[in-house]
């Protein structure tokens, strides 16, 4: 793409509030993509999105198998919601998602954080949600820079040519 570069984007602040594989990876891919392009990136995790940066949970992310009308069987047939309720199905579907992402060379969550922070991207946790889920700094990945308030998040988002993205 050779778009006009009159006002190139300088900074993106990405908010991830959900803890499913696809929600977390959407945020990670967008943040890493920004860093790769030389765009400053701040990634802010809140509510169930905190699972992605919680040491105990970050490698156990799942895809929800109920209430997702876009979910299909391998081969494209519809995936009945009632099937998604059976024990083990969610784990199986999640394992499959992860293996398909690995096949595309998409890194695991912690390695993704490494890529993002190596390029100067910053990872933050939401103070209110961390208090709600009784999480302390030491429960979180070492890539998390700080636990911050909404006000501090908006301070980080200050400046021209900044976008806030809520995944």
């Amino acid at each position: 793409m050779s778009a006009e570069k009159e006002t190139p984007l300088k900074k993106v602040c990405i908010i991830c509030a959900k803890g499913t594989i696809e929600d977390v990876y959407a945020a990670l891919i967008m943040a890493n993509g920004a860093v790769m392009e030389g765009i400053e990136a701040k990634l802010f995790f809140t509510f169930f999105g905190l699972d992605a940066i919680t040491k105990k949970q970050m490698h156990k992310l799942h895809t929800g198998t109920v209430g997702n009308p876009a979910m299909r069987m391998p081969g494209g047939l519809p995936f009945p919601t009632i099937l998604g309720m059976l024990p083990g199905v969610e784990a199986g579907v999640s394992a499959m998602m992860k293996s398909q992402m690995a096949a595309l060379d998409i890194p695991p969550v912690d390695e993704f954080f490494e890529l993002i922070t190596a390029g100067g991207g910053e990872i933050y946790a939401c103070k209110l949600a961390a208090e709600m889920f009784k999480l302390k700094k030491e429960d979180l990945s070492e890539h998390v820079k700080d636990i911050i308030t909404v006000g501090q998040f908006y301070e980080l988002a200050a400046g021209d040519h900044t976008q806030i993205i809520f995944t």
């Binding site: 790769m36 060379d105 890194p107 390695e111 490494e114 890529l115 190596a118 390029g119 100067g120």
Partner: peptide
């Protein structure tokens, strides 16, 4: 080529590549 593959090349790590 990806930044990740360059980082794993042994030639340079991701931080130094940036």
């Amino acid at each position: 080529l990806t930044i990740r593959s360059v980082g794993k090349s042994g030639v340079v790590d991701v931080k130094d590549f940036y």
